[in-house]
């Protein structure tokens, strides 16, 4: 029996689902091992009979919470897909300000008071609302990792998601370290699995896969000094994806 799989999206750019839709020929392999019963991005049909739910996006409103809890009840396995779902990601930047202020800034004087679609609270990652069984990190997700998780679940084994930092993959790619180029990189404290794609393409890691460890303050200060960087640079870097997010582990 092929496991039944459904994809759902909340507040996100749907880029992660697009990564899956873009599997191209391999999409055929995917549907040969799982039964996709719901996937708005590629099909019209929908069913509530599924075992594995992939959730994209962050939770912003009471109505999202109700919908997500429903999905959790229907699904045996729930997988958070992409940074918005796994850590809140970009959507959490606005948590720097109270939700009401943000609404005022965005919608001005428009009358949204009793409209439940605009009833936004502070952004939440999926695991701040329901239990998440597996995480596919990244903004966007890494297709190979998605394949690894799907094949693992289909074979009935635990997916292996690295618990070590991006630097490991970065070193294997023989990149020049971004610090040597005078840029602040979140690689040492961000979970690997992306193949260190950003430093490999000459841009520092923004931590989209979530922070896995918190170095001692003294250590961070030493590094800033050694590479002539400022604390402000560090702060603005870590806000992009990991605002108010503690280390995952």
């Amino acid at each position: 029996m092929k496991p039944k799989v459904a994809f759902f999206d909340f507040s996100s750019c749907e880029g992660c689902q697009l990564q899956i839709a873009n599997l191209e020929e391999e999409i055929l392999d995917l549907i040969s091992i799982v039964d996709v019963v719901s996937f708005r991005e590629v099909m019209k049909e929908h069913s509530d009979n599924y075992e594995i739910a992939f959730i994209e996006g962050s939770i912003m409103r009471p109505m999202d919470v109700t919908r997500l809890r429903n999905i959790r009840e229907n699904a045996k396995i729930l997988v958070a897909l992409g940074a918005c779902a796994t850590i809140g990601g970009i959507n959490k930047i606005r948590n720097q300000w109270p939700a009401d202020e943000v609404k005022k800034e965005v919608y001005g004087d428009a009358d949204i008071k009793d409209n439940r679609y605009f009833d936004a609270f502070q952004t939440k990652a999926i695991d701040e609302v329901v239990k998440v069984d597996y995480y596919i990190h990244g903004c966007p997700i890494n297709r190979d990792e998605f394949k690894h998780v799907v094949t693992s679940l289909a074979l009935g084994k635990e997916p292996i998601i690295p618990n070590y930092p991006v630097c490991v993959e970065c070193k294997k790619n023989e990149n020049i370290c971004m610090f040597e180029k005078g840029e602040f990189c979140l690689g040492p404290i961000t979970g690997a699995g992306c193949g260190a794609i950003c430093p490999t393409h000459r841009s520092a890691c923004d931590g989209c896969r979530g922070i896995i460890s918190k170095p001692e303050v003294e250590c961070v200060m030493d590094i800033l000094k050694r590479y002539d960087l400022t604390y402000e640079e560090l702060k603005s870097k870590s806000k992009l994806y990991n605002y108010s997010r503690e280390a995952n582990k």
């Binding site: 070590y164 930092p165 630097c167 490991v168 070193k171 294997k172 040492p188 001692e216």
Partner: peptide
């Protein structure tokens, strides 16, 4: 105390 457990030292 300052180690970030990144293992860069062993990789290279």
């Amino acid at each position: 105390d300052k180690c970030m457990s990144c293992s860069s030292c062993t990789m290279v």
